[in-house]
């Protein structure tokens, strides 16, 4: 088990609410190897972001814990860089300055000024943003902002790259383009990545494993699908690949049959389903912690 890089062990979290604690996650167990690309997929509100935030250290698990390279995670840090859903660039800094802020913070002791400047530019060029690096976030498009966000995260040389629906807000074409960039970067740098997505194709195309989460409250990991498609992967070629379509179907089946939302469910079916999985998200049942 020398390869165990990131371990989530019995992770659970209960948020305090006016009506008592609300258990969002329970018994989440996951082991991730170095260089592995893992997607988290599940219905809205099931707790994907919460898992990511716990790994990032932004939330504290109430039970269990996260271990990265043998050390327990208890606070946020640049070794677990986050690409936020809405880019979260500082609007008053240019693309370059945004990346620079991160680089200065992480490498202020180990790199010289010139090295840092070069590193900033190198990372911006990884995401093909060198031409617009002196522009502010409100002067560039959504996809460009997201790329700067990725450049900022990559520039920290994190052990784990955490991405919360990085391409969720983009149009389909831009998204495809960004996915290709990510595949290319991943092939080069071989980062460990945890990515949240709503998009089944994206999950299959990018991941080594797809972690499917059950509906909340007290969500946990429902199924893990290993995607054994050879790399480099090409979206056009894969479109007709039976293996690819099989993986796609597996995820769809999980999401729309086993974890179907109550709104979409016919009454007859409900008896067959596991109780915890059909609890409507809107009426969160309160559990004593």
């Amino acid at each position: 088990m020398a390869n165990e890089h990131l371990i989530l062990s019995q992770v659970g979290i209960a948020f305090p609410t006016p009506n008592g604690p609300f258990t969002a996650l329970e018994n989440v167990n996951l082991k991730i190897e170095k260089g592995e690309f893992v997607s988290l997929i599940g219905h809205s509100g099931c707790g994907k972001s919460t898992v990511l935030n716990i790994v990032a250290g932004l939330y504290q698990a109430t039970t269990g814990g996260v271990i990265l390279d043998g050390k327990e995670v208890d606070e946020p840090g640049p070794d677990r860089a986050v690409v936020f859903q809405n880019h979260s660039l500082l609007p008053w800094l240019t693309a370059r300055e945004n990346v620079e802020l991160a680089v200065k913070q992480v490498f202020k002791k180990s790199k010289s000024k010139a090295e840092m400047a070069e590193w900033v530019e190198h990372n911006l060029s990884l995401v093909h943003m060198e031409h617009a690096m002196h522009k502010r976030p409100d002067e560039i498009s959504g996809g460009m902002k997201q790329r700067v966000g990725i450049a900022r995260a990559l520039a920290m040389e994190p052990k784990v790259l955490l991405m919360d629906e990085p391409f969720g807000a983009l149009d389909a074409l831009t998204r495809a383009h960004m996915q290709d960039s990510l595949i290319e970067i991943q092939a080069r740098l071989n980062n460990t990545v945890i990515m949240i997505t709503h998009d089944v194709d994206e999950a299959v195309l990018l991941s080594d494993r797809i972690v499917m989460m059950t509906n909340g409250p007290a969500a946990t990991i429902g199924e893990i699908l290993k995607v054994e498609l050879p790399r480099p992967r090409n979206r056009v070629e894969l479109a007709n690949d039976p293996q690819y379509n099989h993986y796609r179907a597996e995820v769809l089946k999980f999401l729309y049959e086993r974890q179907r939302h109550t709104e979409q469910k016919e009454p007859v079916e409900s008896k067959k389903q596991d109780e915890t999985n059909v609890t409507p998200i809107g009426k969160e049942t309160v559990r004593a912690a």
Partner: peptide, 18 residues
């Protein structure tokens, strides 16, 4: 201040002054 920006500052472990 937007929660996201504070999260960024936490992930970067920015010092108080920065």
């Amino acid at each position: 201040i937007s929660k996201d920006l504070l999260n960024v500052s936490q992930v970067l472990r920015l010092g108080w002054w920065t």
